[in-house]
Amino acid sequence: MKKTTIALLAALSLTSSLTLADYPTKDIQGIIQWGAGGSTDTVMRSIAPHVEKELGGDIILTNKTGGVGAIATKYVNAKKADGYTLLMGAENPQMYKILGLSNIDYSDMIAINVLARGTPIIVANNDAPFNTMQELIEYTKAHPGEVKFGSTGPGGLTSIVTAMLDSQVKLNYISIPYNGDGPALTALQGGAIDVMPAVLGATIEQIKAGRMKAISLVDVESNKLLPDLAPITDALPGMKSYLPWGPFFGVFVKKGTPDEAVEKLQAAFQKAAYNKDFVDLMQKRGFTIMNISGKEADYFLEAYRSTSSWLVHDAGFSKFSPEEFGIRKP
């Protein structure tokens, strides 16, 4: 016990003299919103070592799943605002307020870095009787209630892309929910569902191998990875008002964190996200590197929130109106 006491006293004296001058003085805990093996987990685990090098301290990564990420968000905001607890998350919190999941979203936190953005793509089973967006629309109209769309639950990427579609054309299809795009894409290959919107990175390898076919890219222009695939705006020009839109990965801290820590973290993440290994990794998986912080990040986050919130609200599956939270109409 004596030893512990000595170490304790030593530690206290150390921290009191060094707290502000030399962030970080202890391990930083990174709370990952999603489970091991998911895309958020993979992105965060691949950038963390580069950040550690920049910061000169360890980041302990912890997966804390549940409530579409709301539990991790709540946890980080319950901790001290000292810059030692980071939230490593995806786009989901931006929908929490209107879905009634939590009263905290990213606008109530400080963005350290919005690392990258994904592009949605619509893919179909190889045997599906359509190959382009136009054909998909015509076929669905000709066979109402027959085409099976995969979905990943309200508020997820698929629900927002289908909400975008619904705002343009009225389609009658069966929606079959899965928990996550992994299981849904597997079901797509097995023929349990016909079509589904997903993020490009999750489908690119399967498309290249010819295990599923790409129908349309949900963006305003084609992507380098699939140069022949037409953007959705060719078939539905009205979609331009929502795009470009896509899920993103970002790192956040609680409001009230000392500026010094925020600046150090922002600098470290910015440098790490420029690392060639990381950039290569992200591009190969079809993610667009953003690497933004500060005002730029806030602007991006706000734009995402307003587009998605109103889409979801207009599609009728929000619990509260975006107006209640002062989310402006896009």
Partner: peptide
Amino acid sequence: FQVVLPEGIMPEREILSSITS
């Protein structure tokens, strides 16, 4: 296994980092 057990009133991470330092 880096399971960050509840720290409570003990400043564990400070102690650990002072030991490693």
